[in-house]
Nucleic acid binder design. Structure first.
Lengths: 199, 199
DNA sequence: GCGGTTACAGAACGAACGTTCTATCATGAC
DNA sequence: GTCATGATAGAACGTTCGTTCTGTAACCGC
């Protein structure tokens, strides 16, 4: 009954994620978006309301994809402590292999300090990661992978802080060694909380 | 021989630091600057070249004030390990008491990913902090405050990463507990590297 | 095939940006 | 007091931003 749209909404969202990630919100103009996403201005406004609406949608989409994938990894069957280690190593690998595409969450935290809606979404992402760490570490303690006097909540908050530190230092070329050592110390801190630390 | 200028250059720089810190580079317009700094447009361009020149000057000024103050603190006489602890606690206090004025270095890393000049200055700041940590920790090891098998370089890089993690999470309201726990774990990690960890 | 509906393409809007230009004003040397 | 000099104040430049408007093109049900 009408002309079909010549773009795929989820593909547009994916492309927008990449652009906002690399260039930030202010740094990505509407002409930029329409040119690289294969969607015309009118359709963009019809579909997402305006640029800010698209940005919020992108942040939510990021949460449903990246963040939820991390949570699934942390809650995966097997050793919860090993899941934590795997995720941390994964973050470090991402930070060192793709230094130019920084973490969308980090960009959003810094750029949108006056954007309450965006901040709320981003805060949800950070909280989710922290809770994911905490639950995995609690499970690890219950299963005897961590000592009974370990503090999963404190460890989780510390890991979260360190992970976002890696996320922001990714922006600096030559931070590879810094990030690698940060990961080493994180893993050692976890090791020190196991029942038999040391060899 | 001519009309004297009605502004103080160092005061203008200080004010500009505050504005760039809170609002970022893009988020601070030239009319904003002239209105709040008490300097007219013409004088701003005459003195600093252009907005970008002012920004670079601000970054350098930040380095000479904040960064050098931190380095002095780390190299202060007395216990080098205690100096490290004091600096970390100071960062945490800053992050929790002044959450709205984020770290200028963090803002610059995220915002100016395509600005090579700014990035170079900022990289210098990060490297300086890391080296400051490393030298203090090496001195601590030499003086017996840390075990001989401690790794000052790794610890320094890890601390640096954690500190900038705190810097970016400052942007999120309600990160107080997260930052506090991150500091606790950092201090525990240092404690674990002392000759007699535990009580 | 035809009509109605929706997407597309591009021109055009006002506002804000960084920057430059012009004119006025305040001072020090003589 | 007069003049040269440099700072100040504000209008004005072109560009780019996000957004809206106008017309054209493409599809579906009948």
């Amino acid at each position: 009954m009408a002309r079909p749209r010549s773009f795929d909404e989820s593909q547009v969202l994916e492309g927008a994620v990449a652009m906002f990630r690399e260039q930030g919100y202010e740094g990505t103009s509407v002409p930029d978006l329409t040119a690289k996403l294969g969607i015309c201005r009118q359709s963009l406004y019809k579909t997402f309301g305006d640029k800010h609406g698209l940005y919020l949608k992108v942040l939510e989409n990021w949460g449903q994809q990246e963040v939820d994938a991390n949570l699934e990894l942390l809650a995966a069957p097997g050793s919860p402590l090993e899941n934590v280690r795997t995720l941390i190593r994964g973050f470090a690998a991402m930070a060192t292999t793709c230094p130019n595409e920084g973490c969308l969450t980090v960009t959003a935290m810094v750029e949108t300090r006056a954007d309450a809606e965006a901040l709320a979404i981003v805060e949800g992402h950070v909280d989710s990661l922290e809770q994911g760490f905490r639950m995995a570490l609690e499970k690890a303690r219950e299963e005897g992978e961590l000592r009974s006097d370990a503090r999963p909540d404190r460890l989780a908050r510390s890991l979260t802080t360190a992970v976002y530190g890696m996320g922001v230092l990714t922006r600096l070329p030559g931070s590879g060694p810094r990030i690698a050592d940060a990961v080493s110390v994180m893993l050692e801190t976890l090791e020190a909380a196991t029942p038999h630390p040391g060899r």
